[in-house]
Simulated scan of single mutants.
Amino acid sequence: MNKVITISREYGAGGHTIGKRVAQELGIEIYDKDIVRETVRASGFETEVVQEEEEDVSKASTFLKSLCSSSVHYRDPQEVIHEVQTAVILQFAKKGPCVILGRCADDILRESGIETLNVFIHADDLHRAVRISEMTGITNATELQKLMAKKDSSRRNYYEHYTHKKWGDSHNYDLTLDSGKLGVDLCVQMIVEAAKAEE
């Protein structure tokens, strides 16, 4: 298996769990929080700033940043963080086969000519709500719905801002899997088989 696997995912669809299992099955590295750590080290920004900026592009913040950008001394922190993360993702991908979660990795590596297997994980609201409740301890259905919508909106806006492609559109991925219907085990198996088949 000589490709990099990228996994984009809806919040609560189990993408991290699936990615970790795929990496274990294939005996390769998985990069998620490592990207944050290296971005903090290389950019000088605090961890909280990187985590806040890395997957959140709202229309309001874009408007405010555009006003500030008229200053020759202003450098949008999110743009700086994205540039550093792009370099970090490329650095990890060039080390060899691995799994990279989110952060526009599919588009970054495609643009750089690095061979990838690009996966999108989604699920219905009920399965996602159950998983999120287990992760966060939140049990109120309205709160869970709001959290899903907020996280998905942040990921969608970030992806579409930097790639100019539609987040979750099957045309942008090699595999789109419904973890609610298929279950984690089958999703892992399908990704592993697809990765091996492309050798």
Rank of each mutant, 00 (worst) to 15 (best):
G15C: 05
G113Q: 14
L109W: 05
L117E: 02
Q24F: 07
T139Q: 12
S179I: 07
Q85T: 06
M1L: 15
A87N: 15
E134I: 08
L177R: 01
H161A: 09
T139H: 13
A23Q: 00
E199H: 11
L126A: 15
L186Q: 12
T47Q: 02
H82P: 06
H164R: 10
T62V: 09
T142M: 12
D107G: 03
H73R: 08
D178H: 01
G14M: 14
Q145W: 07
E46Q: 12
K166E: 14
E29D: 14
N2S: 11
M1G: 08
S69F: 14
E199L: 14
L177T: 07
L126Y: 12
A197F: 09
G168Q: 11
G180K: 01
V192A: 09
V119Q: 03
G183I: 13
K33D: 08
R75N: 12
L117I: 01
A23T: 01
D169Y: 10
E198L: 10
L126F: 11
E38I: 09
L67C: 13
L109H: 08
S8E: 13
V84P: 01
E46V: 01
G15Y: 03
I89E: 06
V40N: 00
C68L: 14
Q91V: 07
T47F: 00
V50E: 00
W167N: 06
G96K: 14
T163S: 13
E38F: 10
S8I: 00
A129D: 05
P77S: 04
K146W: 08
G96L: 09
Q85F: 05
L147N: 01
R103S: 02
G14A: 11
R131G: 07
V50A: 00
N157Q: 09
D34H: 12
Q85R: 10
T142Y: 13
R75A: 12
K65S: 13
R131D: 10
K65F: 12
V188Y: 02
L101Y: 08
D107I: 15
Q51M: 10
A93I: 09
G15P: 00
R9V: 12
N140K: 10
G12L: 07
G14S: 11
Q91D: 15
L117D: 04
I28N: 02
Q189Y: 15
E143Y: 02
D107Q: 08
N172D: 05
E38V: 09
